[in-house]
């Protein structure tokens, strides 16, 4: 793992689901985004196989950029490649609008709350 500083994530495990929150309110800095991508990629690798289950909460996030969306897509591709499931939750309305504009609301399964996201795993 080529992380460059302290973890950008808060991680907890509930049954077979890896739950992730971001430390940063703004996910804009390219090196931080790269680190987030690597850290979550490692969690996908370590999650119970087959079919890793990840839930990413945006509860603390005020701003993100298209580079952050790109990181989420890369993570989603990796999880799909392992026949896993990704859920996103607690997305602020302004940020949800970014997902809608980019039509990524069609790609990701997005839930209003962590509980709703947890209940949706197959």
């Amino acid at each position: 793992m080529a992380t460059t500083g302290p973890s950008r994530l808060r991680v907890k495990h509930q049954k077979d689901v890896t739950q992730i929150e971001f430390v940063d309110r703004n996910i804009l800095d390219e090196s931080n985004i790269e680190q987030i991508k690597e850290e979550i990629g490692d969690l996908v690798d370590k999650a119970p196989a087959p079919g890793p289950k990840l839930l990413i909460s945006f509860a603390n996030v005020d701003h993100l950029s298209s580079a952050a969306l790109g990181a989420m897509i890369t993570i989603n591709n990796k999880i799909k490649g392992r026949k896993g499931q990704l859920r996103l939750a607690n997305i602020d309305p302004q940020i949800y609008e970014v997902f809608k504009i980019t039509k990524l609301d069609k790609l990701f399964q997005i839930h209003e709350s962590t509980d709703a996201a947890l209940a949706s795993f197959g």
């Binding site: 298209s66 969306l69 790109g70 990181a71 591709n77 504009i101 980019t102 039509k103």
Partner: peptide, 18 residues
Amino acid sequence: DPTLDENLTVPTGRGLLL
């Protein structure tokens, strides 16, 4: 166009759209 179905899983190319 990053919003086309075939491009949704491509991680780049959304800055100008936004």
